[in-house]
Write a protein that binds this DNA or RNA. Sequence first.
DNA 1: CTCGGAGCCTGTCTGC
DNA 2: TGCAGACAGGCTCCGA
Length: 274
Amino acid sequence: MPELPEVETVARQLAPLIAGRRIERIELFDARLGRPPLRQLYGSTIGRVFRSGKEVVIEARGEPADEHGSPRSRWLSVHLRMTGRLIWRAGRARDARRHLRARFRVDGGAVLFYDPRRFGTLRLHQCAEQTAPPGLDPMSPGFSVEALGELLASSAQPLKSWLLRQDRLVGLGNIYASEILFAARLHPEKLAGSLSRRQVVRLHRATIDVLEAAIAACGTTFSDFQTAQGLTGSYQRFLAVYGRDGQPCPRCGAAVRRRVQAQRATFWCPRCQR
DNA sequence: CTCGGAGCCTGTCTGC
DNA sequence: TGCAGACAGGCTCCGA
């Protein structure tokens, strides 16, 4: 389910809903989540809530050790993988238990973690540095044409597969990789290291444009994705190629094609992507 | 390094 | 209607 725009949407919506609230209790309902020592977060106050790569990170600020000490923070990161959802529930209503994997009780409500396929993960970090993803975030100031060019330069991988690797750029997944390549008019099987300077510029521009538009639309919803407020995204209305196998390319009218590349469906326009 | 395949899970949709 | 198979927004591991 969630790629960068969806995770960004969840983090942005969750932040004002839970920042400043006290963590009362965290319940895990799925053994696959392991047994992270979450009790150490009890009584701490939620600070920043932000996206890191494809993870939602929640800062838990503990009490100051003494009156001069600054509060000790820990960070809880949630990876939604394919079908995870983080939903804010105000008050003390009863929660649907189906697919409920974890519940973060805070004063005034709870954050519910639903995940039908159970691929999602929770991790507890003792320092902020540990929450940083390995790759470059395309929404960060460091994402320049030069930086993208350098990352691409050494690779003999097809562009579509390259874009899915989280150790180079973080946050892109199967939907946006296809959409970005369409916007950049680049063929998904073109080798990453073979791009001209102008093509790198196009890819850079397309990455930012597609992600910003998707964030503005609160992400893409097919079936699973919901925002923190239980709403759906609307970017699916703007998808040019993803899931549009056989339909006309919105730019040139040629039939959009689909093929499986490294186990994942790839969609592209055979006429205007070169 | 890269690729392909299997695996982790459950739900939904398609075609016979 | 029933059932098998394909497929799904992510990622990791293995062997070639």
